[in-house]
Simulated scan of single mutants.
Amino acid sequence: MSSNKKTEEFYKKLRIQLYETTSWPSEYLYKFIVPTDQKKILQIEDLFNNLGAVITTKESGKGTYTSVSVNVNMKDPDAVISKYIEVAEKVEGVISL
């Protein structure tokens, strides 16, 4: 199975889970890991700019990676997923959790 097909299947399952477990609009907590690079962290912050997001960061013990948590009110699962896709496309080396 190709990577794109796996990604599509993942988002399809996530969409169903989000609809079944949450009433929308709702707070959603995104978690990302990026190599510690202020530019990459700012890229993620910029993608959530003007959404009223609360963003926290924490560097790994060795300082190699930084976790970025974004708590934001989203209107529906499709908005959640499109933000995941946008971050993946625009921030090189990001890992979405």
Rank of each mutant, 00 (worst) to 15 (best):
V68D: 01
E86G: 00
A88F: 03
K58G: 14
N71F: 04
V91A: 05
K58R: 15
N73G: 00
Y84V: 01
K58T: 14
P77L: 09
V80G: 09
T64G: 04
S82E: 15
K90W: 08
V80A: 13
A88P: 00
K62I: 03
I81A: 03
Y84W: 10
M74N: 07
S82A: 10
T64E: 12
P77K: 08
M74E: 11
E89F: 07
Y84H: 15
S67W: 03
S67N: 12
K62N: 15
V72Y: 00
K75L: 11
S69A: 07
K75P: 00
S69Q: 11
I85R: 15
E86Q: 13
E86R: 10
E86A: 08
V70K: 00
I85D: 09
Y65Q: 06
T64H: 06
V80R: 11
V80H: 10
T66W: 05
S67P: 00
N71L: 14
Y65W: 13
S69L: 12
V87S: 04
V72M: 04
K90P: 08
V91L: 04
I81L: 02
E89H: 13
Y84I: 03
K83P: 02
I81Q: 03
D76Q: 03
N73L: 10
P77F: 08
N73H: 05
V87P: 11
T57V: 15
G61E: 12
V70E: 05
V91N: 02
V87F: 04
V87H: 04
N73M: 07
K75G: 06
V91D: 04
N73K: 13
V70D: 03
V91G: 07
M74F: 07
E86I: 00
D76S: 15
I81W: 00
V80Q: 09
S60R: 08
G63C: 08
